[in-house]
């Protein structure tokens, strides 16, 4: 043993994250959430209603008043067909944002859930990866149910749509990692207003409800770099069967965002919880 152990800097997150995943240990956090929601499944189910209600009211309701929408390649689709994949992307985002911000904050700050976890062999990277992984399970489940609803309503036009579920998981991943990372900077519940400040504009202005061509040009470019737009574009292309290599760019953006989020979250949690 060396004479002096200097103040330990948190383990390098990329190494810690890799070790965590290799050991399957983050799954224990997923198990915990399964135990919790086994008794409160209706809370999970409720999360699905919101996007479906939007789909019914805006897609079918407003859609009846609005003409068909041009989706490129000279093709036009009914408004509800246009808006449904956007709602699918939104449901993937919303499903994880609440879980990784508000719920995570309660567990981290008030219930001290993670303090208990970290007294066991588990490490901070297991917490960051495990909580993100749970968010993926959740967004995957929502996306599946939502896609089935779309099929039932006749809003799906291509077999590529089966990839809409993995795409939704990718959207979930992007927002889960980022959500946890952002939450580590929150001091009180008041700070959650900032979450709404980000989520609501994304929800409204990610080419969710109207195509990119409707935005003023400068704003259109701004939308192109926002995260939910990547998800909306990806889902819409898959559901309409309008598939090209360009989609990998959207997927890569979301994957990078999620990875960066988990990386930052691991680093921050190491500083905050291993004091």
């Amino acid at each position: 043993m060396s004479g002096l152990t200097p103040t330990e800097t948190p383990t390098r997150p990329e190494g810690a994250v890799a070790t965590a995943i290799a050991g399957w240990r983050p799954l224990r956090l997923v198990e915990r959430n399964v135990l919790v929601y086994r008794r409160t499944w209706y809370v999970l189910a409720a999360g699905l209603f919101e996007p479906i209600l939007y789909l019914l009211s805006i897609g079918l309701g407003v859609g009846a008043l609005v003409g068909p929408v041009a989706v490129g390649g000279g093709r036009e689709v009914p408004y509800e067909v246009f808006v449904a994949p956007g709602m699918l992307a939104v449901s993937a985002m919303n499903g994880v944002v609440f879980d990784t911000t508000f719920n995570f904050f309660v567990k981290y700050k008030y219930s001290k859930t993670f303090d208990a976890v970290l007294a066991t062999p588990l490490e901070v990277a297991d917490v960051a990866v495990g909580e993100s992984a749970w968010a993926l399970v959740r967004s995957g489940a929502y996306a599946t149910a939502f896609l089935l609803t779309m099929v039932a309503l006749g809003l799906v036009q291509s077999w590529w749509a089966v990839l809409a579920v993995p795409a939704a998981v990718l959207i979930g991943f992007a927002f889960a990692g980022t959500g946890i990372a952002a939450t580590t900077w929150m001091r009180s519940f008041v700070d959650f207003d900032y979450v709404m400040l980000v989520v609501v504009p994304l929800f409204l202005f990610s080419a969710t409800f109207f195509p990119l061509g409707r935005y003023p040009q400068a704003l259109g470019w701004a939308v192109r770099v926002t995260p939910l737009y990547q998800g909306v574009a990806l889902e819409r292309a898959l559901v309409l069967g309008d598939v090209g290599w360009g989609l990998l760019l959207h997927a890569g953006y979301l994957a990078a965002m999620g990875t960066a989020g988990v990386w930052v979250a691991t680093r921050r949690l190491a500083i905050l919880l291993r004091r």
Partner: peptide, 16 residues
Amino acid sequence: RARLGVVPQEDTLDTE
């Protein structure tokens, strides 16, 4: 940690 048991000062039971 795998071989220790910890009873912290503050209750950290999982209230959910």
